[in-house]
Design a protein around this nucleic acid. Structure first.
Lengths: 361, 361
DNA sequence: CGATACACTGCAAACGATTGCAGAAACGCT
DNA sequence: AGCGTTTCTGCAATCGTTTGCAGTGTATCG
């Protein structure tokens, strides 16, 4: 069916071994024959069979990336980055979707080692520590975004404490004192860390922590709906909301739209993690960027390092933090303490009516 | 390192061949030994090595899905569907991102055949017909969403003519007569087909086609911006816009927000293809659903069929169409011909006004 | 000029499975 | 008991590479 090494060898009237050595460039063959074989191989359109090679060498040139889903914009860019990087190095990426489900993660993991992947970047659920630990003995593994506490795997993390701190401080600097926080479940690292960053910023600013302003929930839009309602229904509702549970953003947006709350006039909104449409939305939504691109790149770097190091790529470091940064757009504004709360106020502002607008933009 | 067939055979005091036959269940071994081997294999934690097996059988248990990107929501759900289906059948999905770039597509394709994938579902760029055709001789291929005209590959397509027709008709039924269309490049199948569906609906309703209402462009948000502006700046702007180039939706939304145009009061908006946030958006955006989920499922079905059929799974059918359907949400409304156009009308609802304020523009 | 090193090359055994072929065991039948 | 079937098992080749080892030829040196 396809051209094998034998074919090349025959055409060149040498043995398979010589052909192999010439083509893989082990340097054990004369310059002349090497060139000749290279040429013949090209003419014949020879492509080495990774399966056969893999059988012998134990390597597959396959690197897996295991993420929870593809809906999350961060995972999308990570996948794209990883794929691009790996391809450039001659690896194929095996992208797997684990659905944040331990069982599925475990299954996938076994399939992957069956296929003798050369390396793995995984966003762990945290429930398969033992398995991961065992795997790590055989293949290089790097954890991404989440840590699996049951292991001591090298992990590339977003700097969530800092990101949350940055975001909260930004809001404080704008004059907000009552800042609602919608954050992820407290049994996840990111959930805890983001809360801590928020708390630290508050403390630094001398603002007392008010637990009625803090809501945690699952990473789904519905969380945004319920939490946002709770916040707005408070006797003294917040003047700003920091949605540090990115999936919840949709829910928050909906509730504010339903209640005719104008962002950022009536309420400032700051979100965690970017989505492609955030900058197209009006008002464009300010965010704390967790640096998905950097995270992915670093993860690949670390993985490659380990793969090269053949066994011990331990540089002592167990955990890398990728800095978060604030991207200011239009959804946060200075808080004027004298203005009325968010009760039904009618807009005087229609000033900028469409006439002016339609100019050119 | 890991348990091989030989280990199992030794433990059971039989030959490797017997072990192999027992475990693969070829029925050529006695019930008793088979059970015994199954047991021992389980105890030892034996997992067959797909690489070794692949070398002998020429199969890899790998099926590739090649899409343009992961940003597109349709591709996301397709990837998830394909992954789920394949995994259930013991295949691993190789998800590849081709970026709609012929060169990259071609490279990826070669890598994939190198890895002896058992099957391929591809969204073709349309520029590598020859290569695809050649590949199709060796492995089962199904095209998805786009057709490659240079081949006669089995193709699973969305019913774009029908979808566009449905959408347009919906708007017409709501009383709209001037319907703007923002559609994809006319050198893509989908671009052409959606335009044709739009035209048909118009003709059926006895509405003259007005080419100033029709704009085509690349699949990027910017297209939405420019096309939308052109439409709104028309002497007689449309009362509804059908965005049949899904990437352009963001741009359209931005322009309308900037110009203080309230949807659906001032302008009805209908989009093609769903995005997760469409139903959370206020107003929730009505769409024509191209049935990404169904498309993916059908593609998998067809591929599996071909893979089973070993060579000729040709059922004569070359092309499958998956019906589109209309999902009515809140972005389209009845058009009242008596109301003023979209000139400077001040908002009664006032809700959105300030959003556009941010002067930015 | 003979010995010794060196640079290449080829043979053959792996890697871990599958599979055609032939031998062994078990059985039924005359 | 002898023979033919049938049923199971094992040997060994094979898939396409890589790689240790031994062999060949040529250059180098004393």
């Amino acid at each position: 069916m396809s051209v094998t090494l034998k074919d090349v060898a025959q055409a060149a009237r040498v043995s398979v071994s010589t052909a192999s050595r010439a083509l893989t460039g082990t340097g054990l063959t004369s310059e002349r024959t090497q060139q000749r074989l290279l040429l013949i191989a090209r003419e014949l359109g020879y492509r080495p069979n990774p399966i056969a090679r893999g059988l012998k060498t134990g390597q597959s040139r396959l690197v897996a990336l295991l993420v929870h889903n593809l809906t999350n914009a961060s995972f999308q860019v990570m996948a794209e980055v990883v794929q691009a990087r790996l391809k450039a190095l001659g690896y194929q990426m095996l992208l797997c979707i684990g659905g944040d489900d331990p069982q599925q993660e475990s299954d996938t993991l076994t399939t992957l080692v069956d296929h003798r992947i050369d390396g793995l970047i995984v966003v762990p659920t945290g429930k398969n520590g033992a398995q991961l630990k065992a795997l790590a003995k055989d293949i290089p593994i790097v954890c991404l975004v989440r840590r699996d506490d049951a292991t001591d795997l090298e992990t590339v993390l977003a700097d969530d404490p800092q990101g949350a701190y940055l975001g909260t401080r930004h809001l404080i600097e704008l004059g907000h004192k009552r800042i609602g926080l919608i954050v992820g479940r407290q049994d996840t690292t990111s959930g805890r860390e983001r809360l801590s960053g928020y708390v630290r910023a508050l403390r630094e600013a001398g603002i007392a922590r008010d637990d009625t302003l803090i809501h945690a929930g699952h990473y789904v839009p519905e969380t945004g709906v319920t939490c946002c309602r709770k916040l707005l229904d408070l006797p003294r509702p917040p003047s700003a909301i920091f949605v540090a549970n990115h999936e919840a953003t949709l829910g928050v947006l909906r509730v504010t739209a339903e209640r005719n709350i104008t962002i950022p006039d009536d309420l400032s909104l700051l979100c965690y993690e970017d989505m492609p449409w955030f900058e197209w939305h009006r008002p464009a939504i300010s965010i704390v960027d967790n640096g998905a691109r950097d995270l992915a790149n670093l993860a690949v770097d670390r993985l490659l390092h380990r793969m090269d190091a053949k066994g011990n790529g331990n540089d002592g470091v167990r955990e890398y933090r990728v800095g978060a940064r604030l991207i200011k757009r239009d959804s946060c504004r200075h808080f004027d303490a004298t203005a009325p709360a968010k009760s039904g106020k009618s807009k005087s502002s229609s000033s900028k009516s469409s006439a002016a607008k339609s100019a050119k933009v």
